[in-house]
Structure formats: structure tokens, C-alpha cells
Nucleic acid binder design. Structure first.
Lengths: 163, 163
DNA sequence: TTGGCGGTGATACACTGTAACACTCGGGCA
DNA sequence: TGCCCGAGTGTTACAGTGTATCACCGCCAA
């Protein structure tokens, strides 16, 4: 697959790492990492593409266990609140947090229009510039979203190799 | 009301300017600036706060003329496509474009958590930094959204004066 | 006149998200 | 042990957002 995993890996391996991080964080903050929350995180972390709440609900439902979307939303609220999952506003969907920052500040999401993969990175310089711009405008920021849509390196490489 | 109109004014006066700009643009590009599109733009431009599609539909409906949301969506598609209106992803709502750039690139939206006003600005330095960061990540951007939530200068000023 | 085309009206439907209430489970306490 | 309480969950209902589809209308060109 794509092997630019130096930054961070989502994917099946990433799911276990995400779970481990979540367990640690919940232990530290005395939060309940319940089965539902773990399952939702597992489902989301097992994908590099964002999942809708109803996708997650469906993925978690089995014969004998029906997970309603509203339950998924509550779990997602919990997970996003603690920085374990991020909401992609431009897609109304969710991705697992691939880093360990957990504060949710200064993130940039790179959404590939071709393969749908979402990559997550930080950009301190961009952050600095933005902070200056906002200060000049007299605006006090509390939170922000920065989502870039385009073509990821993997897809560009493939297109170059093939074409 | 608020008198920080030095940057650009939405509001009732802004609506007329927005219409004028739209008429010019449609003439130049040989597009149809129909009544529905004009009405939708007028409704959106008359507000500094974002309007949902259903809000617009309701605002445009009168006894004897019912405007369905689906019609509003089509008009909004047209208007956003040509940069006359912007979609605020974090709110699922729309605001009139307060500038004349019309290409929709490099915009930053400042959303006041207190008064709900949305201000729109450009930040070339942020853009430059972001471009460099993306290039380093091997990502080719096509479009992006940058929305900051916080407290606007007007509200900060009032709070300071009152408190 | 006819036919095509863009815009609009209208209905239906899928997707996204929230409100409200009941239930369970676990822990603290009399 | 029995009771209370709070957090989490299940369930239903519903509000809000957005799209698909078809019919109709007006305009222009052949």
C-alpha cells in the first residue's frame, strides 16, 4: 500500500495503537473507556477514510446486537472531546486521531479527492501566521478547522508511474 | 449597531453591492442572473450571520409564492460556484461573499461565537506557509476551507466597555 | 411549429444530528 | 441487604440538511 508511514499510520495497525492511547488517556483522566466507545474508536481507526456516524453504527451492528446511530454519536462526542477522534466538517464524517497531541489545536487535514484518505498533520508556521493575522483583525480565536482537499502523494506517485 | 464597517459591510447596504457585483459578473460570463438567484443572494447578503438553506426558503416564501428548499439549493450551487456566496462547513450554512475576489481561494472565515457574525478576510502569508507545508508533505491542494471560531473585535470591545 | 435546453416547481427520499425517556449497571451508604 | 444516585446505553421520535427524479415552463434556434 502506501508506505509513507514515517509520519503516522492509520490502518489496521493504527487501530491498536489508537486503542492503547485511548486506554492510557482514560486511565490518566479517570474516564470510562467503555465497550461502545472502544468499538467506535476501533471502527474509525481501522479506516484511513472518514466514516459517517451511520456507517459506524452499521459496522458495529451484528445479528443480536444493534447499535443505534444515536449511541454512536454519544461515543463520538466523548472521543472528539478528548481528542481521540476528529470530525471532518467538510464531509460530516469522522477519523481517528493519528497523533498524540490530543488537544486538537493546530491540526491540518489533508483529504485526497482521489482515494479518499485523510491525513493529519500539524503546521506550526501556518499556526503562527494565522495567529498574527487574527490578532491584527482584533479577533480572539477559540478553535478552528483547516481542511485541504486535493491529491495525496501516493495517488500522485501512482498517476506518474502509470501514465 | 456595530460600526466596524471599515473592512467590508454585509448588512442591508452590502446586499445592494452584492447584487450589483453579481449582475456585472453574470453579464461578463454570460450567465443567467434569474429572479430566484437574485432573491437568494439578497436574502443571504442581508445578513451578517449565516443562513441555512431552509431559513432562506422560508424568508423567500410569501402568501402566494412558496419557495422550496430544493430550489434554494440549486440557486446556492450556482452562487457558490461563481464565488458570490460561501458555504460555512462548520455551520452548514451560507454567507454572502463580502469581497470581489470571486475565486474563493485563500479565504479565512472568522465566526464570532458570541454574536454569530461571520467576517471574511484573506491572509496571503498564511496561504504561503500553508502552500509550503503542503508541498513538503507531497500533497497537491485543490481547495481548502479555513474557519476560525472565537470572539470578534466588536464583542470584545463591548465586553471590555461594559465589564 | 417543433425540439432542445436551462431553470424552476414539486414530491419523495436519504443522510445527519438532537431531544426525551426508560433501563441497566456499578458504587456509596444506611 | 436494600436503597439511591449518576453515568452510560437503548429506543423512539423528530428536526435539519441535502439529493434524486420527474414534470413543467420559457426561451431560442432550426
Amino acid at each position: 500500500m502506501h508506505d509513507h508511514a514515517a509520519t503516522h499510520d492509520h490502518g489496521c495497525g493504527g487501530a491498536q495503537a489508537a486503542i492503547a492511547r485511548a486506554e492510557r488517556l482514560c486511565r490518566e483522566r479517570d474516564l470510562q473507556f467503555t465497550r461502545l466507545r472502544r468499538d467506535v474508536l476501533t471502527a474509525v481507526a481501522g479506516q484511513t477514510r472518514p466514516m459517517g456516524a451511520y456507517d459506524i453504527a452499521e459496522a458495529l451492528s451484528e445479528p443480536g446486537r444493534r447499535v443505534a446511530a444515536v449511541s454512536v454519536y454519544r461515543a463520538l462526542d466523548f472521543l472528539t472531546e478528548h481528542g481521540l477522534v476528529h470530525r471532518i466538517a467538510s464531509r460530516n464524517a469522522f477519523v481517528s486521531c493519528g497523533h498524540s497531541h490530543t488537544d486538537g489545536a493546530g491540526l491540518v487535514f489533508l483529504i485526497c479527492r482521489n482515494c479518499g484518505t485523510i491525513d493529519e498533520t500539524t503546521a506550526p508556521e501556518v499556526e503562527d501566521q494565522l495567529g498574527r493575522t487574527l490578532a491584527k483583525a482584533g479577533f480572539r480565536p477559540i478553535s478552528r478547522i483547516l481542511e485541504v482537499e486535493g491529491e495525496c502523494g501516493a495517488c500522485l506517485g501512482q498517476a506518474g508511474a502509470e501514465g
